[in-house]
Amino acid sequence: MSPILIAEQVLNGLQFGVMLFLMAAGLTLIFGVMGLINLAHGSLYMVGAFAAAAVAGLTGSFLLALIAALAAAAIAGALVEIVVIRRLYARDHLDQVLATFALILIFSEGTRWIFGSFPLFLDIPGWLSGPVTLPGGIAYPLYRLVLIGAGLAVAAGLGLLISRTRIGIQIRAGENDREMIAALGVDISKLYTIVFALGAALAGLAGALVGAIQSVQVAMGEPVLILAFVVIVIGGIGSIRGALVGALLVGLTDTLGGIFLPELFKLFLDPATATAVGASLASMAIYILMGAVLIWRPTGLFGAPA
């Protein structure tokens, strides 16, 4: 196993991790501020990907497609918040789970209705395709490198937004004491709509960016949603920093586990058995990681102690 292969896999893991972060950040923000568990977050990821594929198909411009993804997901998020979600803040988690599960059914089947069952394709634009050579002679796809950069830039931007801006102050205040900031004259229901739309836009962006390296299809969001839950459980609910660390851990564990576990088992098992055992263990690796974190620290790495 060459160092180049290992470096490539680490980059793949990072790329997967930062995309998970875009999903997990929105989820954890929505939970932290509004106390809402949103299963339909994966649908917003799908909305972003479909909007991007549709606009790219019409105009041929990748940048316009990304803008469309952000706008479509943010608008869908704001609409859903106003029509359904705001009736759920005072309800228990069970009602939230069911209502957002119902939203998944409506979004998924509605998208199938409009776009059909066949996957759409979103092409990587010419100026971002092809490999680049990194120091050490590693040839790596430019687009994936851009994904890592874009994800980290969004993470930094989100950090600045939360810590430095007026809206960030309101978000942090909303996490601590929502009655108090309402009493201080902040329009809390407008703030909630903004936070929900922001989370939705992040999910839509992730959907569009990942849509260019996978196919764009109905129900593409839910596997990512569940991984984002694993990220949040590991990182701690409500913590953006936890989401970033958790996402990178999950991304690296999943990617590296798939490559190295079969190799590891080949040291003491015959190759066929080693590949089978290693592959099935690798598919479980992130959940084992989650279990270990739960035993060690039930509220996650950066979560407030219960």
């Binding site: 359904v84 009736r87 009602d95 069911l98 209502a99 599960f101 119902a102 939203l103 998944i104 059914l105 409506i106 998924s108 089947e109 509605g110 199938r112 209705w113």
Partner: peptide, 16 residues
């Protein structure tokens, strides 16, 4: 073929 849209609507109505 898309009956689950209506299932979703019914479910949402029951929850709300």
């Amino acid at each position: 073929e898309f009956w689950q849209v209506w299932l979703g609507v019914i479910l949402l109505a029951v929850v709300l």
